[in-house]
């Protein structure tokens, strides 16, 4: 049996919305430790990894050691959009029901002694488990900046070029693009905002390097403003995939791995 409840359905909706940017369907792996979702986009360019630990939920119970539920993200997102922000979201699954395999989604709104309830059932599908595993990487370079700022730059660059070049230096990040018609250059410097720490830019770059990324992937990662207003980019060098990370409470979060382009 599985049952988990959340008082902020908006946050879970944001997670599913972020995943559905790249992925049509994926396995939800429920264990006693929490929910994990990992999937590749159809082009196998970006790897998305989500952890929602048991303590991240307001209530969490999974009796099985591992429960793999194949979920169509587009349909789940449609259901989640039906839930009022002030409702209690409950996900449940009964694995003794052999006839229909479905994830139940319920929204409850307190009305004094009574509750308004909306219930949905999402039919599950079989998805072969992913064989790929994220390798352990020792990140040597790290940059942390406002998600909104990365979003703004990626959105602007997407108007000009499908490719963006990131040059990480010890004291600055240059993001640029060029096309036949124009070029664009952004310089981002580390700084501490003493009145609002969320505006700060922090970088710890041991060895400067340059990498080209496909713009629309960076833009879609940066849409995670609702997950965390800060994005952390972890790197090693131009030959190793970069990780874009948006953390949440209780060791939960969403992160993406993407490799740099070969040559442009």
């Amino acid at each position: 049996m599985l049952e988990c409840k959340l008082q902020e359905p908006k946050v879970f909706r944001s997670v599913v919305e972020a995943m559905s940017e790249h992925i049509k369907e994926c396995n939800f792996e429920f264990t006693r430790e929490g929910l994990k979702m990992q999937a590749l986009d159809s082009s196998h360019i970006a790897f998305t990894f989500v952890t929602l630990s048991a303590t991240w939920w307001n209530e969490y119970r999974c009796d099985d050691e591992a429960l793999l539920l194949g979920v169509n993200l587009e349909t789940l997102l449609k259901i989640l959009k039906c839930g009022p922000d002030n409702s209690l979201l409950a996900l449940s699954y009964e694995n003794d029901d052999d006839e229909v395999s479905e994830l139940k989604v319920k929204f409850e709104v307190d009305r004094g002694e009574k509750k308004d309830v909306a219930e949905f059932a999402l039919k599950l599908t079989h998805i072969d488990p992913m064989e790929e595993e994220v390798p352990e990487l020792t990140w040597t370079n790290e940059l942390e900046m406002p998600t909104q700022e990365l979003f703004r730059i990626a959105r602007d660059i997407s108007l000009f070029s499908e490719i963006m070049v990131l040059e990480f230096d010890k004291d600055k990040l240059r993001i640029s693009c060029s096309s036949k018609e124009s070029t664009a250059d952004y310089l981002v410097h580390p700084f501490e905002d003493s009145t609002n720490a969320s505006n700060s830019v922090r970088m710890n770059i041991e060895a400067p390097f340059k990498v080209s990324l496909t713009t629309h992937y960076v833009l879609s990662f940066a849409k995670n403003k609702n997950i965390n207003e800060r994005v952390v980019i972890k790197m090693i060098d131009a030959e190793t995939p970069l990780m874009f990370s948006f953390s949440m409470k209780e060791g939960s979060g969403i992160c993406y791995y993407i490799a740099g382009r070969l040559t442009d």
Partner: peptide
């Protein structure tokens, strides 16, 4: 897009 390598090829190499 020939210049954008798949992430799986990296994972298998690492």
């Amino acid at each position: 897009d020939a210049n954008q390598p798949s992430i799986t090829s990296f994972f298998s190499k690492l």
